[in-house]
Design a protein around this nucleic acid. Structure first.
Length: 826
DNA sequence: ATCTCCCGCCATATG
DNA sequence: CATATGGCGGGAGAT
C-alpha cells in the first residue's frame, strides 16, 4: 500500500515540493533539512492523493506511476540524491527537470482517478491545485488546457473545473481522428515532407515556389475546437473567442497522430502544419520556434497521459525529435454517422450575430453548397496543386479534383447543434462516464475496447481492438502511398503478414524514390510496414520507420542514370510501364501461377475516402464507372476496416506478376485494361454494410485497382481484369497462413500461399537485400531489414531468384530497401 | 551547438 | 476594475 507510494512520493514529490516551499521564503533549502526528513515530508501530498482516490484507484495509480514514470522519477531521484549527497555545498536546486511540466502533470493526474465513477465526481479548484502542487498558476493552465482539449476536464467557472478522467477519451479521439481526416492532414504531412525533400534536393527550383504556394494552410490555421456532446465548453464566452492555441493546438497535434500512418509525428512537421504553413520558410522562423515550444508543452502532458512518447526519427538529415502515439487506438468510424451526431466541431464565432453553436461545425467543414466548399482553402489549394501537376505531366480526362470535390460534399455533415447529442448510440455511451462503474472496469482495462463496436462477424477471440490498427499488431494497417503526380495520396491497407511483400513491391516504391524519394510516401509507407515487424518498446528496440532510400539507383538498372532527375523519371516511366503492363496482362490471362505476385492491400484515394461515402462509392462501382473515377475505389469499407485477420489472409487476390524492374504501368495501358465487370463487384458494392465477405471482396478489388493507381498512373486508375472466378462468398477462411507469420519463409524466397477464391495462386517473392548496407547507421540507430520477421532473425534474402524462377523475377528481383529512417527512443 | 522548455511578462477575457 | 486566463518568447539547463 505504501511502498509504491513512497517511491513515487519520495522521488518526485519530495523534490519538487521542498524546493518551491523554500524559495518563496528566501530560505535557501538546507541540505540537511531536506534529505533525511523528506521521505515523509511529502506526506501531505500523499495524503491528498490518497484521500482523493479510492483505494483501488489509488493502488492502480501508484502502480502506474511507478511503472511508467519510473524511469523519469528514478532519474530525478538520482539527480536528487546526487545533489544532496554530492553537492552539499550548494543548495540542491530542484534542477530543471524536477520542475518539468511533465512531472507536474504527473502529480496533477495522480490526484484524480482515471475513471472516476459517477459518484466520485471531482472538481478541480485551481487555487488548491496550485497550492498543493506548489506551482505557479500559469503552469496549471497549461496542463488543464490540454486536458481540456481531450475532454478530460472541463471548465465550470473561474477557478473551477470538473474532472472527467479518461471516460471521454475514446470518443474524443475518435472525433479527433475524424476531423483530422477531414482536414486532410495526411496530405498535408505528405506535402510538407515532399517539400522538405525537394528543398534539400533542389533548393532553388521554381518547383519549390509552386509547391509552397500550392500547399494550403487551409482552415487549420483557423481556430476550431472539437467538442463532445457531454462536454461542451461551459461559459459560452470561453467558447466564444480567443481560445486560441493550446487547446486547439493540442487537438490538432493529436489528430496528426491519429491520422498519420506510422503514428509518429515529428515536431517539425507538426509545427508546420499547425502554423498556417503558408508563409515562406524564413518568415516564420520565430513563429516556428514558438510553435515548437508550445508543442513541447503539449507533448509533455500528453506524455504524462501516456498517449504519446518521445522518439527520435533519424533521417538522412539527422535526428529529429518526434513523438509516437502510444495511446489507445481509435476505432474506425464505421458507423460514424452516429458518432458524427455526437461530436461537434466548433470554430470561433465570426460574427456576433451568429450563435456560436451555429458556427460550430459550419465553419470547419462545410457540408452543403459549393460555395461553402469553395471556401475550403485547403481543398482549393490542394486542387490547384493537383491540377498543376497534372497539367505538367499528362492531361487526364477526368480531373480528380472534381471528383474529390464532389465526394467531399458528400462527406458526413456535422450537426449544427448539440441538440443531437442525445442521439449518442448506446454502445458508445457505454464507455461514457455516466453509464457506470461497471464500465469503469472495462475502460480501465483498455480504453479502446471500452467502446464495443458491433463487428460484422467479429471473432470473439480477438484480443486486439479491431479497426484500430496499432502499428504493431493490428490486422489491417494503412499505408500511405503518395501519388506523386497528382498530389493525391492513397492508402493501402495491408495485412501484417503481407505488408512486407507489398511494400517491397509497391509501385510507389519503385517510382517514388526518385521523385519524392524516401521523404514522402515511401517513407511512411515503409515505416508502417516496419512498424509492425519491428518490436517496439524495448530497450534497444526502435520503432521503425522510413525506409531508406527505397531503391537506390544502382539497384535499378533502368533508372540508373536518371536518379536525380524527376522530369526524366516521370517521362520515362510510361514507357516502362507500358511494357510491363502488357506483359502483365498476358501473364494474368494465362493465369500463370508460378511467379505471381500477391498484392496485399487496397488503395484508397485518401482525398475523398476520408470515410464512408458508402452510397457514393458503391453507386459508382455499380455503374461501372470505376475506370473513370478514383472514387470508385473507395469502397464501403474504405478506411480502416476492422476485418478479422483470417479474412484478409484468405482472400485470394488475383496475382500479378511482379517484375521488379517494370512495375510501372502507363496510364494508357491501364486504361486499356478491361474494366472490372465481375459479378463480384456488384455484389460487393450493393451491400453498404460491409460484411466479412464483402470486405474481403472489396479488399481484393481495390487491391486490383490499386496497382495502377499506386503505380502513379496519373489519370484514372482502372480496375483491371480480375481473373477471379469464384464468388466472394467462397472465400474460405481457411488459412491464416501467412507465411511470414508462420515462418514459412524459405530462405530467400518468400512464399505466399493463399487459399482464397481460387486457391490456386500463390506468390513467390524473392527477397533481396540492398546491395550494400550503405550509410553507416548511427550506432544507436537500428537498421532493420524489411523482412525481418517478428520472431526470427533477419532473413538473408539473396538475389538469386527463386524457385520457379520466373524470368521476370529473376531478372529484377525485389529489393528490400534498407531503412534509412528509424525511430529510436530516448 | 542543439534540444528542451521553464519562467513570467503582459495582453485579454471574465465576472 | 480586479482577477483569471493564457499567448508568447527570452534565455538557460540538459545533452
Amino acid at each position: 500500500l505504501k511502498t509504491p507510494l513512497k517511491q513515487a512520493a519520495t522521488s518526485q514529490l519530495v523534490l519538487t515540493e521542498r524546493q518551491p516551499d523554500c524559495q518563496p521564503l528566501t530560505t535557501p533549502p538546507k541540505p540537511k533539512e531536506t534529505p533525511p526528513a523528506d521521505p515523509w515530508t511529502p506526506t501531505s501530498n500523499l495524503k491528498m492523493l490518497i484521500s482523493a482516490a479510492s483505494p483501488e484507484i489509488r493502488s492502480r495509480e501508484q502502480r502506474r506511476q511507478l511503472s511508467d514514470s519510473s524511469s523519469e522519477v528514478l532519474q530525478a531521484k538520482h539527480c536528487l540524491q546526487e545533489h544532496l549527497l554530492g553537492d552539499e555545498y550548494e543548495k540542491s536546486q530542484p534542477s530543471r527537470k524536477e520542475k518539468s511540466l511533465g512531472l507536474l502533470c504527473h502529480k496533477f493526474l495522480a490526484r484524480y482517478p482515471d475513471y472516476p465513477s459517477a459518484s466520485q465526481k471531482s472538481y478541480i479548484c485551481l487555487d488548491e491545485v496550485t497550492e498543493e502542487l506548489h506551482v505557479e498558476r500559469r503552469r496549471i493552465y497549461d496542463i488543464v488546457n490540454v486536458l481540456e482539449s481531450l475532454h478530460m476536464v472541463s471548465r465550470l467557472a473561474r477557478n473551477r473545473y470538473v474532472w472527467h478522467g479518461r471516460h471521454n477519451l475514446p470518443q474524443t479521439l475518435q472525433a479527433l481522428k475524424k476531423v483530422g481526416e477531414e482536414n486532410k492532414y495526411i496530405q498535408q504531412i505528405q506535402m510538407i515532407k515532399k517539400r522538405e525533400y525537394e528543398h534539400e534536393f533542389d533548393p532553388d527550383s521554381e518547383r519549390n515556389e509552386e509547391m509552397a504556394s500550392s500547399f494550403g494552410s487551409s482552415e487549420q490555421s483557423e481556430m476550431s475546437f472539437v467538442e463532445l456532446p457531454g462536454v461542451e465548453f461551459r461559459a459560452a464566452s470561453v467558447n466564444g473567442r480567443k481560445y486560441k492555441s493550446l487547446r486547439v493546438m493540442s487537438q490538432k497535434f493529436v489528430m496528426l497522430f491519429l491520422v498519420s500512418t506510422p503514428q509518429i509525428v515529428s515536431l517539425e512537421v507538426a509545427a508546420k502544419i499547425l502554423i498556417g504553413e503558408d508563409q515562406l520558410e524564413d518568415l516564420d522562423k520565430s513563429k516556428f520556434k514558438t510553435k515548437i515550444r508550445r508543442l513541447y508543452d503539449i507533448a509533455n502532458v500528453l506524455s504524462s497521459l501516456k498517449l504519446i512518447k518521445k522518439v527520435h526519427v533519424t533521417e538522412e538529415r539527422g535526428r529529429k525529435p518526434a513523438f509516437k502515439w502510444t495511446g489507445p487506438e481509435v476505432l474506425p468510424n464505421i458507423q460514424d454517422t452516429k458518432l458524427e451526431a455526437t461530436s461537434t466541431v466548433c470554430s470561433p464565432p465570426i460574427s456576433e450575430s451568429i450563435s456560436s453553436k451555429e458556427q460550430c461545425s459550419k465553419t470547419l467543414f462545410p457540408s452543403k453548397g459549393k460555395q461553402n466548399f469553395t471556401r475550403h482553402s485547403s481543398l482549393i489549394k490542394l486542387v490547384k496543386s493537383i491540377e498543376n501537376d497534372r497539367r505538367k505531366i499528362q492531361s487526364a480526362p477526368t480531373s480528380p479534383v472534381k471528383i474529390s470535390a464532389s465526394t467531399y460534399q458528400s462527406l458526413p455533415v456535422f450537426p449544427n447543434t448539440i441538440a443531437q447529442f442525445p442521439a449518442i448510440p448506446k454502445h458508445q455511451l457505454e464507455g461514457q462516464s455516466k453509464t457506470a462503474e461497471e464500465m469503469q472496469m472495462k475502460c480501465a482495462l483498455s480504453s479502446p475496447e471500452a467502446v464495443p463496436k458491433p463487428e460484422p462477424s467479429q471473432q470473439p477471440a480477438l484480443s486486439q481492438p479491431l479497426g484500430v490498427c496499432p502499428a504493431s499488431h493490428s490486422s489491417v494497417s494503412p499505408v500511405i502511398l503518395p501519388h506523386p503526380q497528382s498530389g493525391v495520396s492513397y492508402a493501402i491497407y495491408l495485412h501484417p503478414s503481407q505488408a512486407p511483400t507489398v511494400t517491397t513491391y509497391s509501385p510507389g516504391f519503385m517510382l517514388q524514390p526518385l521523385t519524392c524519394a524516401n521523404v514522402t510516401g515511401v517513407k511512411s509507407n515503409n515505416s508502417k510496414v516496419l512498424n509492425k515487424i519491428t518490436t517496439e518498446e524495448g530497450d534497444n528496440q526502435r520503432a521503425m520507420d522510413e525506409p531508406t532510400k527505397s531503391l537506390a539507383s544502382e539497384e535499378r538498372p533502368n533508372m540508373k542514370s536518371e536518379t536525380s532527375s524527376q522530369g526524366c523519371l516521370k517521362r520515362s516511366q510510361p514507357l516502362q510501364e507500358n511494357n510491363l503492363i502488357k506483359r502483365r496482362r498476358n501473364d494474368e490471362e494465362s493465369l500463370d501461377t508460378s511467379s505471381t505476385f500477391f498484392p496485399s492491400g487496397y488503395l484508397i484515394p485518401l482525398t475523398h475516402c476520408t470515410h464512408g461515402n458508402k452510397a457514393d462509392s458503391s453507386n459508382k462501382e455499380k455503374a461501372g464507372v470505376c475506370s473513370l473515377q478514383h472514387t470508385a475505389y473507395s469502397s464501403p469499407i474504405t478506411g480502416v476496416i476492422p476485418m478479422p485477420a483470417s479474412e484478409l489472409k484468405t482472400v485470394n487476390i488475383p496475382a500479378f506478376h511482379i517484375t521488379p524492374l517494370n512495375i510501372m504501368l502507363s496510364p494508357n495501358s491501364v486504361a486499356a485494361a478491361p474494366v472490372l465487370s465481375n459479378s463480384c463487384l456488384n455484389s460487393s458494392s450493393t451491400s453498404s454494410a460491409p460484411n466479412p465477405s464483402s470486405s474481403a471482396l472489396n479488399f481484393m478489388l481495390q487491391h486490383i485497382g490499386l496497382i495502377p493507381a499506386g503505380v502513379q498512373v496519373p489519370a484514372n486508375p482502372v480496375l483491371q481484369h480480375v481473373p477471379v472466378s469464384s464468388q466472394p462468398e467462397n472465400i474460405s477462411h481457411s488459412s491464416g497462413n501467412t507465411n511470414l507469420q508462420e515462418g514459412k519463409v524459405s530462405k530467400n524466397t518468400l512464399q505466399l500461399d493463399h487459399g482464397g477464391l481460387s486457391g490456386k495462386y500463390s506468390a513467390i517473392i524473392p527477397l533481396q537485400q540492398p546491395s550494400a548496407p550503405k550509410e553507416p547507421q548511427e550506432p544507436q540507430a537500428v537498421t532493420e531489414n524489411f523482412f525481418r520477421t517478428p520472431g526470427g532473425p533477419n532473413t538473408e534474402p539473396s538475389l538469386s531468384a527463386n524457385s520457379d524462377g520466373t524470368e521476370r523475377i529473376s531478372q529484377g528481383t525485389l529489393y528490400i530497401p534498407q531503412r534509412k529512417l528509424e525511430v529510436s527512443e530516448d
